[in-house]
Simulated scan of single mutants.
Amino acid sequence: MVPSIDDLHSLFLDTLNDDTLDLHVRIVDTIAAIRFIHCLSSSNETKKFQDLLPGMMRTLTDASCSSDEAYRTEGAVQVFIELTKKKSQFLRRKLVNVVDSLLVVVEDEKLKEEMRHLLVELA
């Protein structure tokens, strides 16, 4: 049985917005959601998933400050960068919020230099 787009959207959204879940789960959900969005063919389908952006950004912000999740966080940011290159319209409506979130994280002095560069590339 193949789940519908609406079911997947709900699953991604619920997971991203559940702060009681382990950060690792939210990072994996972010990566899965981004990879799924890559596969969407129509702009209408892609628009349905724009409301995931705040949860994705919150997850990336939380993960960027966690040394335990550095490897997965870098992977998530790289997948996000690919998304912005392939589907730039996905970020269009929330661009100001995305950039603001990234700038807050980049200014954290505890952040590794490699992660800082990735986040600046994403911004």
Results as ranks from 00 to 15, higher is better:
Glu121Pro: 11
Leu119Thr: 02
Asp68Pro: 11
Lys94Glu: 05
Leu119Pro: 03
Asn97Gln: 15
Arg92Ile: 13
Ser101His: 03
Lys87Glu: 04
Ser67Tyr: 07
Gln89Val: 09
Asn97Gly: 11
Ser88Asn: 12
Arg93Lys: 12
Val104Leu: 08
Leu111Glu: 05
Val77Ser: 00
Val99Arg: 02
Arg58Ala: 04
Leu111Asn: 05
Phe90Cys: 05
Ser101Trp: 01
Val77Ala: 01
Lys86Pro: 04
Gln89Gly: 08
Leu83Lys: 02
Leu118Trp: 01
His117Trp: 11
Lys94Met: 06
Gln78Ile: 15
Lys86Phe: 00
Glu82Leu: 15
Asp68Ile: 04
Thr61Met: 09
Glu109Trp: 02
Thr73Met: 07
Met115Glu: 06
Ile81Glu: 00
Val98Tyr: 03
Lys110Ala: 13
Val96Gly: 09
Gly75Phe: 10
Cys65Gln: 14
Glu82Trp: 10
Gly75Lys: 09
Glu69Gln: 14
Asp108Gly: 08
Phe80Gly: 04
Gln89Ser: 09
Lys112Asp: 14
Val77Gly: 07
Met115His: 01
Val79Tyr: 07
Glu114Cys: 12
Arg93Asn: 08
Cys65Lys: 12
Glu82Asn: 13
Lys110Glu: 15
Glu82Ile: 14
Lys87Met: 11
Leu119Arg: 07
Tyr71His: 10
Ser88Phe: 10
Val104Lys: 08
Glu114Pro: 06
Ile81Val: 01
Val77Tyr: 03
Thr84His: 07
Val99Ser: 00
Ser67Trp: 08
Asp62Ile: 01
Leu95Arg: 10
Glu113Tyr: 08
Phe80Arg: 04
Arg58Val: 03
Lys85Asp: 08
Leu83Val: 04
Lys110Gly: 10
Leu103Asp: 12
Val96Cys: 11
Val79Asp: 06
Leu95His: 02
Tyr71Cys: 14
Val104Ile: 08
Val120Gln: 07
Glu109Tyr: 09
Ala70His: 13
Met115Trp: 00
Ser66Gly: 09
Leu60Lys: 10
Glu113Gly: 02
Ala63Cys: 12
Ala70Lys: 08
Ala63Gln: 07
Ser64Tyr: 00
Lys112Ile: 01
Val105Lys: 02
Leu118Ile: 04
Arg72Phe: 06
Gln89Tyr: 07
Ala63Asn: 04
Glu113Ser: 07
Leu103Lys: 15
Asp62His: 11
Asp100Tyr: 03
Lys94His: 01
Ala70Ser: 12
Glu107Thr: 05
Asp62Leu: 10
Leu119Glu: 02
Glu82Ala: 12
Leu102Phe: 06
Val99Pro: 00
Lys112Arg: 10
Lys112Ala: 14
Asp62Asn: 12
Thr61Asp: 14
Glu74Gln: 15
Val106His: 00
Leu83Ile: 06
Asp68Met: 08
Tyr71Thr: 13
Phe90Met: 08
Thr61Gly: 13
Glu109Gln: 14
Val96Met: 08
Leu83His: 03
Asp68Thr: 12
Arg93Thr: 10
Leu119Cys: 01
Ala123Thr: 02
Glu74Thr: 13
Thr73Ser: 02
Lys94Asn: 09
Leu103Gln: 15
Lys110Leu: 13
Val105Glu: 02
Leu118Pro: 06
Phe90Leu: 07
Gln78Asn: 11
Leu103Arg: 13
Val104Gln: 03
Thr59Glu: 01
Val104Ala: 05
Leu95Val: 06
Glu121Ile: 12
Lys94Asp: 06
